[in-house]
Simulated scan of single mutants.
Amino acid sequence: MTHSIFIRSLGSFGDRQPRMLAYDITSRVEAETLARNIATAYHDHGLNPATEVYWFRYNGSVHEIYVE
């Protein structure tokens, strides 16, 4: 099974459609590590403990990054 990484912008009017950042990653651990590394590359970032989804702030907007 392969995994993909998605990013979704969270705006004041609700969630925007997710966009695929990467696909065809064979290892879930590798995909999750890559998503975490992307999120932590931004100064303002974190992990939502309720959903276990990483987020980061860029240009005043919050974005979620996750693996499916």
Rank of each mutant, 00 (worst) to 15 (best):
residue 46 G to Y: 05
residue 27 S to E: 09
residue 37 N to G: 06
residue 64 E to C: 00
residue 44 D to C: 08
residue 35 A to L: 11
residue 29 V to L: 10
residue 59 N to H: 07
residue 17 Q to V: 05
residue 6 F to W: 10
residue 55 W to A: 02
residue 63 H to K: 05
residue 33 T to M: 06
residue 36 R to L: 07
residue 37 N to E: 15
residue 52 E to K: 12
residue 53 V to D: 06
residue 19 R to T: 13
residue 56 F to R: 03
residue 55 W to S: 07
residue 68 E to A: 09
residue 35 A to N: 09
residue 30 E to F: 01
residue 2 T to D: 11
residue 46 G to D: 04
residue 14 G to F: 12
residue 3 H to M: 04
residue 9 S to Y: 07
residue 64 E to Y: 15
residue 20 M to C: 13
residue 35 A to C: 11
residue 10 L to M: 10
residue 3 H to D: 03
residue 6 F to V: 00
residue 11 G to Y: 00
residue 22 A to H: 06
residue 68 E to V: 05
residue 1 M to N: 04
residue 28 R to E: 11
residue 28 R to V: 13
residue 49 P to H: 10
residue 26 T to F: 03
residue 1 M to G: 04
residue 62 V to K: 10
residue 60 G to D: 09
residue 14 G to R: 07
residue 55 W to E: 09
residue 60 G to L: 03
residue 13 F to N: 10
residue 57 R to W: 06
residue 42 Y to F: 15
residue 32 E to N: 09
residue 35 A to E: 08
residue 52 E to F: 02
residue 4 S to K: 11
residue 35 A to G: 09
residue 28 R to M: 14
residue 2 T to N: 15
residue 16 R to K: 15
residue 61 S to M: 08
residue 14 G to K: 07
residue 23 Y to G: 10
residue 18 P to C: 00
residue 39 A to I: 07
residue 64 E to K: 10
residue 5 I to T: 02
residue 61 S to E: 07
residue 1 M to C: 01
residue 8 R to A: 14
residue 56 F to S: 03
residue 45 H to N: 15
residue 2 T to W: 06
residue 52 E to T: 02
residue 11 G to Q: 02
residue 7 I to T: 07
residue 43 H to A: 13
residue 33 T to S: 12
residue 40 T to S: 11
residue 54 Y to I: 01
residue 44 D to V: 13
residue 57 R to G: 02
residue 58 Y to S: 10
residue 21 L to D: 08
residue 17 Q to A: 15
residue 6 F to P: 01
residue 27 S to M: 12
residue 16 R to L: 08
residue 11 G to I: 01
residue 34 L to K: 13
residue 14 G to I: 10
residue 11 G to M: 01
residue 64 E to D: 14
residue 42 Y to C: 03
residue 8 R to K: 13
residue 34 L to C: 08
residue 1 M to T: 04
residue 31 A to W: 01
residue 43 H to W: 10
residue 10 L to Q: 12
residue 11 G to C: 02
residue 22 A to E: 09
residue 43 H to Y: 08
residue 56 F to E: 04
residue 19 R to K: 11
residue 22 A to V: 03
residue 67 V to W: 01
residue 59 N to P: 00
residue 62 V to P: 00
residue 56 F to L: 07
residue 2 T to Q: 08
residue 19 R to S: 13
residue 27 S to D: 12
residue 52 E to A: 04
residue 34 L to T: 12
residue 17 Q to H: 14
residue 18 P to F: 01
residue 13 F to K: 09
residue 45 H to Q: 10
residue 23 Y to T: 09
residue 64 E to N: 15
residue 26 T to V: 04
residue 46 G to N: 04
residue 42 Y to D: 03
residue 52 E to S: 06
